[in-house]
Design a protein around this nucleic acid. Structure first.
Lengths: 363, 363
DNA sequence: GAACGCTATGTAAACGTTTTCCATACCTTA
DNA sequence: TAAGGTATGGAAAACGTTTACATAGCGTTC
């Protein structure tokens, strides 16, 4: 059979055109005709293999493979009433993307999605007002079956909306002020900064400042809580002027460090809710001739790639974004398959990675 | 019929909740029934407004808006035989994404796509072998109408494939060894490094080393050409041991700098084909106690965000990735609309941004 | 005043699947 | 041998659109 086919191609080819192959996206009808069965059978072979006899199954399979048949996704989607697509909307900052968090997440999602038949639809939008409009378009326009939402806020209107519309979704990070249960995968920021703070305390630090994230972001509260927990356990009072809130930018870390480094009283360590701000702090220290890791310890959060190459290399808390991305699609798939929400809530423990920017306090 | 329905809604609404709207994704049939016209007319109102009388048009429009009607994309796609989607495949590196180029590109694409009815499908895959398989799946599976391809290689099999299949696409960056014309938008790397080299020459440098990109990448050749052009115009010979090739990683820049900084003869300036390698060079200089910008000048390429915060801040060549992303979808849309390839080839001029890592050579 | 053309709309087919329902053939069991 | 079950596969409907074609109404022209 195959030989016949090849001969056919060749003869046509020699007469008309060398590219006159029938490879042009055959129909299910085409496959059915070639195999001498009905289109229903072809469909069954692909979707419900046990409902068809082994012989026909093999034959159809072979012919489908030979013809390079791929079911038209739109026919399938229309019939099944599903989009066979999951969505991710990326809030694009005013300026530039300062870190590649979303790329890592994307890579993870892509990895999880490969093999499964689903596509990944990505939308971007300026953060803020329009964001919900984009979600609307995706779900009410039936363009996705489910969504991954990232960078959760404390009271997250996106999550509220998805819950209200009863659309399957998985959240990367929790949204503490939403009471209805929903599926999430979070990396425990409290634990992360508890470890970091405890480590500093163990080194002998007592004067530890904290540069937090914008309080509307959910992880801001968690990371702060970890710091407070460790400080409380050590019976250390919180100095309010050492509890700062930045906007996650390098520059913000730099600016806030300026105020922290004013005499008479300097902290011996500064905890930063992300690496970018920590890098800003390092810059402020350098400008003032203070040695990071010796005179003032600095610990960041996220372990972005450049953390390895700062001077000194930045100690930080590592989150496996790519793995979480992969797991997120597994969870979303499970959700789509009907697994109850309660079984889809995970909190991972981050890892404290110590490089050069921490050390015992100066004596 | 129509009145019955409205009355029903209203009574429910007033009794139960002001939001008990029939917003649940109405059909085109539903809209047609409500407006007392055929579904064909509704469709025409939306796709071919002049073909319907102003009165009915208004009425249908109003009802569609009131009902929150959104045409089911899968019905539309199936009927029109188009995917209404464009694709981007992101090669995900082994380790971590070192820069956020693809995010900027994504943001630009998203911006260009907003308002147009198209979706953006993103796939990721490990670079190399599998990549073409992903393209295959997207185009032969009819999942996209067109593609954006980025990070072009000199002999780019993806472009070759798309040309062969006659699939509309736009390329970010050229692929020099492909002779068939195709649409591209490139930022002139030759010009960029010509400017950078000329600037160094102007400052008085004569000993300029060059750390290039992997030669299979297309821009590697361009950037090198810019360097050579400027050196040739200044009648300076090329020293082969100062023509290096890195892998674009910070570490690679660091390693290669080690060999360049071996006595007896040190270059007074080092040009790096991307910022990451330049940052590695800065690190190597710092380790050896050499002051960047005073003892050795360093210029990078790309202007990634962290370039602002190195010590000293990195001089580099800026590419407006987000703008190119936006323009890329415009070009792709034009291509899909039938604009000929010849009209869709653009080369932009990059911008040399001087910060602190360059200066006159030491005397 | 008949023929014509133009405008506005409706009818129905088509896009490529999946799935329900039904028919047939065969096998088992009493 | 009749009854009933099971395996297999075909016919046809349906998913929600768009669009080619048909038709009705009406003004224009010779």
């Amino acid at each position: 059979m195959e030989n016949v086919y090849i001969a056919f191609c060749k003869s046509i080819g020699s007469i008309r055109s060398p590219m006159a192959t029938p490879r042009l996206n055959p129909d299910i009808r085409r496959v059915a005709a070639e195999a001498g069965v009905s289109i229903a059978t072809v469909s069954r072979v692909l979707n419900n293999p046990d409902r068809v006899s082994p012989q026909t199954r093999e034959r159809v399979l072979e012919i489908a493979a030979r013809l390079g048949y791929q079911p038209n996704p739109n026919g399938k989607r229309l019939r099944k009433g599903r989009a066979e697509t999951i969505g991710l909307v990326i809030p694009s900052p005013q300026g530039r993307f300062a870190d590649s968090f979303f790329l890592e997440l994307l890579a993870g999602l892509g990895e999880g999605l490969s093999g499964v038949g689903l596509d990944l639809l990505v939308a971007t939008c300026p953060p803020g007002a329009e964001e919900l409009t984009v979600y609307r378009r995706l779900v009410e326009g039936k363009r996705v079956d489910g969504l991954v939402v990232a960078r959760t806020r404390r009271q997250d209107e996106r999550i509220a909306y998805l819950l209200e519309q009863n659309i399957p979704f998985v959240s990367h990070g929790r949204s503490d002020l939403i009471t209805t249960p929903y599926p999430y995968l979070d990396v425990d920021g409290q634990q992360g900064f508890y470890m970091a703070t405890a480590h500093l305390l163990h080194l002998g630090h007592r004067e530890i400042a904290f540069i937090g994230a914008p309080h509307e972001l959910n992880f801001a509260a968690h990371r702060l809580a970890g710091y407070r927990q460790a400080m409380a356990e050590a019976n250390l009072p919180l100095r309010l002027e050492w509890l700062l809130e930045g906007d996650l930018s390098e520059n913000s870390g730099y600016q806030l460090a300026q105020s922290l480094l004013e005499p008479p009283r300097l902290p011996t360590a500064i905890l930063c809710a992300n690496d970018l701000m920590a890098i800003g702090v390092l810059r402020a220290l350098r400008e003032r001739g203070l040695q990071a890791g010796r005179e003032v310890s600095v610990i960041g959060y996220d372990d972005i790639p450049q953390a390895q190459y700062t001077d000194p290399p930045l100690s930080t808390v590592h989150q496996p974004f790519r793995d979480t991305g992969k797991r997120l699609v597994e969870m979303l798939l499970a959700r789509l398959a009907g697994v109850p929400v309660a079984a889809l809530q995970e909190v991972w423990v981050p890892e404290l990675v110590l490089r050069g920017s921490d050390g015992p306090p100066p004596t």
